[in-house]
């Protein structure tokens, strides 16, 4: 999960994801970025994030994304 900010920057290089508390409200990720991010996380961590979990609340900030990854069994 250390790579998370780096993965986010690959999608939106113009933003610093370590400072924002709400990526969606701050306009850093739109709905299509979420799809791209989920596909990237699935591939990077060898998981499949459930479709019903692809909701803005789970992608608000680094902490919520990390929580989601933990639920998917990602430990490090």
């Amino acid at each position: 999960m250390k790579r998370l900010p780096e993965l986010l920057r690959e999608i939106r290089p113009e933003f610093d994801f370590t400072t924002s508390k709400d990526f969606i409200a701050d306009g850093m990720l739109d709905s299509f970025d979420l799809m791209t991010l989920v596909a990237t996380l699935d591939k990077t961590y060898g998981i499949s994030i459930q479709g019903t979990d692809i909701v803005p609340e789970n992608f608000k900030n680094l902490e919520t994304i990390e929580n989601l990854l933990r639920q998917c069994g990602v430990t490090a």
Partner: peptide, 11 residues
């Protein structure tokens, strides 16, 4: 509303 449609389908 892409997010709403996506969640509707998955749910």
């Amino acid at each position: 509303d892409g997010t709403a449609i996506f969640n509707f389908v998955q749910t």
